Amino acid sequence: MEKVLKMEESIYEWVNRYPEVIDIMVELGFCDIVKPGMLQTAGRFMTLSKGIKLKKMDIDTVKLTFQHYGFKVLE
C-alpha cells in the first residue's frame, strides 16, 4: 500500500500517521524537527511546501527522497 503525503498537511499530521517521516525530514536537512517540543508547536502549522521555501530547497529532490522511502508526495 502506497503511503501518501499531501504538501499542505502539517508535518505534525504526517508524523502521527507515519513516524518514520522524522528520519526522512532530518536526512533532507530539517534538523529542527527533532528539537524538544518543536513538532508539537511549529510542526502543527508547518507544511512541507513552507519548509521547502524557507530552506530554499528543490522540490523535486525532496519528492524523490520521499519516493525512495515508499512515499508519494501530492501537491
Rank of each mutant, 00 (worst) to 15 (best):
M1V: 12
E2S: 13
E2F: 12
L5V: 09
K6S: 06
E9G: 00
S10C: 10
S10H: 10
S10G: 03
I11H: 02
I11K: 01
I11E: 02
I11G: 00
Y12D: 05
E13G: 03
E13A: 14
E13F: 13
W14K: 02
W14Q: 03
W14R: 01
W14V: 02
V15W: 15
N16P: 04
R17W: 12
Y18G: 00
Y18M: 05
Y18I: 06
Y18K: 09
Y18V: 02
P19S: 05
P19H: 11
E20N: 08
I22C: 01
I22D: 01
I22A: 00
D23W: 07
D23Y: 09
D23I: 02
I24T: 03
M25K: 00
M25T: 00
M25Q: 01
M25E: 03
V26P: 00
L28Q: 02
G29E: 07
G29I: 09
I33F: 04
I33C: 01
I33H: 01
I33Q: 00
V34E: 09
V34Q: 08
V34S: 06
K35S: 08
K35Y: 09
K35A: 09
K35D: 05
P36D: 07
G37Q: 14
G37M: 12
G37A: 10
M38V: 04
M38G: 01
L39C: 02
L39E: 00
L39K: 00
L39W: 06
T41C: 12
T41N: 14
A42G: 04
G43T: 05
R44F: 15
R44Y: 11
M46P: 00
M46E: 15
T47M: 11
T47K: 06
L48H: 03
L48F: 10
S49F: 10
S49I: 12
S49P: 00
K50S: 11
G51V: 03
G51W: 13
I52D: 04
I52R: 04
K53C: 05
K53I: 07
K53Q: 09
K55R: 07
K55W: 10
M57R: 05
M57I: 09
D58Q: 06
D58Y: 10
D58V: 05
D58L: 07
I59E: 13
D60N: 12
V62A: 04
V62L: 11
V62R: 02
K63I: 13
L64Y: 08
T65Y: 08
T65K: 14
F66A: 12
F66V: 13
F66Q: 10
F66Y: 15
F66W: 14
Q67N: 15
H68Q: 14
H68F: 14
Y69H: 15
Y69Q: 11
Y69E: 11
G70Y: 14
G70T: 09
G70P: 07
F71N: 04
V73T: 06
V73M: 13
L74F: 07
